[in-house]
Each structure stands twice: as C-alpha cells, then as structure tokens.
C-alpha cells in the first residue's frame, strides 16, 4: 500500500509538470482557431459562391479526416517540400510544438465554424430589422445586436468544442511534445504500471474539463439572466429542458 501511494504521488507530480503545456496548446489553438472559425462562418454566410464553397470544402476536409493525419501532414509531410525548408517559415514548422499548435487550430476552426454559424443564424431576424430601422449601420447592428446574442447562443456548443480540444492536445504527444499524455506514456514505459499512471493522467484531464464545463455554465448563467427562474429548483429546470 505504501509503495502504491508513493508511486501515485510520484506520477502525479511528474504528470503535473505537463499541465502548463497542455493548457497552453489548448488555449492558443482555441483562440487562433476561434478567429479562423469566425472568418469561415462569415464566408459560409456571405451568399457568395466563391467564398461559400472554399469554406465548405475546408470544413468538409478537416472534419472528415482524423486529427492525427493532419498533425502528421504538417509535422512530417511539409518537410517534403524543399522550397518550404528554405523559407522563413521553416524555423516554426520544424518545431513539433508549433506544428501541433497549427494542426489543432486548423482542426478546431472547422468544427467551431459550424458552431459560430449556428449562433449567428439563431439571432432572430426581427431583432436585426429593429436595429436597422432604428438607423444603426450594418457594423453597429452587428456589434451591438447580432454578435452579443450570437455569442450567448454559441456558449454550449463552444464549451463542447473546447473540451474536445483539451483532449485533442494529447495527440501532440505523438510528435514528441511532452505534455501530460507524453509524460504519461514515458512514465508507463519506464515503470510498467499503466493503471496507476492512467488514473493520475485521467484525473488531471477530468479536472481541467470539469473546470471548463463549470466555467461555461457560469458564463451562460451570467449572460442569460432571463432564463433564471429563482423560485424553481435547479433540477426541475434540467428536467423541463429534457
């Protein structure tokens, strides 16, 4: 028992050293991917074929292939082009960290684009028409009416995507990035105690994902005060939604 506890403590402290890298990868790729997702969603909603179709194709390709292929294509595949190896981008594309980041960002952009598009489409047209008839310009309408309402609508879908992203950062370990899963794999091969290491690594991911889910629930509550019904018990609200 003592041996078990010491090993658990050792593996937990070892794995915790990977947490900053996991969080960094997730955060950076979600932010970059989010910006790209907005661009893609606007392209999809532009009603112009030459913008809509490239965005559709992008989303189809990135959602239809495994993330691992995308990571390998960027990390191993790009080296095939001698022109690229001579370019100024190579110092970045040579690094496993930046390749993982890029692949994760491009991947999440495709999934989030549909979340963003759904959010933008969910804004009632009456609201937009009202803003327009008050004399707001397109941009002002977007900034004051469409965007805030759409962002609020996107929260649940986006929280799913972020949780998926936290889990996806584990794939960076396949290209030598030593985040939590990379450290876990190394520890397993050194100690041959897969169950204990899995429990520790799994607990770390569960805590991160729980925090993300909780944070988004709080955000949702903060931005949708009208959905609060103080005299109804929370579990009753849950049931009525089902």
């Amino acid at each position: 028992m003592g041996d078990f506890l010491t090993f658990m403590a050792v593996s937990l402290t070892t794995l915790l050293r990977g947490v900053p890298l996991t969080l960094q990868l997730a955060l950076l790729s979600v932010v970059t991917g989010g910006i790209l997702a907005f661009a893609l969603a606007f392209m999809r909603l532009s009603n112009r074929v030459w913008l809509d179709y490239p965005a559709r194709a992008y989303i189809f390709v990135f959602r239809g292939t495994p993330l691992l292929v995308q990571i390998y294509l960027i990390y191993y595949g790009l080296g095939q082009f001698t022109g690229l190896r001579a370019s100024f981008l190579w110092p970045f594309l040579r690094e496993a960290y930046w390749c993982a980041m890029l692949a994760l960002a491009l991947n999440t952009a495709a999934y989030s684009a549909e979340v963003v598009r759904g959010g933008l489409l969910s804004v009632p047209s009456g609201q937009i028409e009202a803003a327009r008839s008050c004399g707001m310009s397109h941009w002002l309408t977007f900034r004051r009416i469409t965007l805030p309402l759409a962002l609020r609508q996107m929260l649940p879908g986006y929280s799913n995507e972020i949780i998926l992203m936290v889990k996806s950062t584990a794939l960076a370990s396949t290209i030598t990035v030593m985040e939590v899963t990379g450290l876990a794999a190394k520890l397993i091969s050194q100690s041959y105690r897969p169950v204990e290491v899995f429990v520790c690594a799994g607990a770390i991911y569960l805590v991160i994902n729980f925090a993300v889910a909780r944070g988004f629930t709080l955000l949702e509550r903060r931005f949708s005060p009208e959905r609060q019904r103080p005299h109804v018990q929370p579990n009753q609200i849950e049931e009525s939604r089902v």
């Binding site: 949780i163 889990k167 996806s168 584990a170 396949t174 899963t181 897969p194 899995f198 690594a201 569960l206």
Partner: peptide, 9 residues
C-alpha cells in the same frame, strides 16, 4: 473526459 489515446495506452 479523458483523451482516447490515453485509454488506448
């Protein structure tokens, strides 16, 4: 809640 690759390992 846990990465698939971890389960595979």
């Amino acid at each position: 809640g846990v990465p698939d690759i971890l389960v595979i390992y």
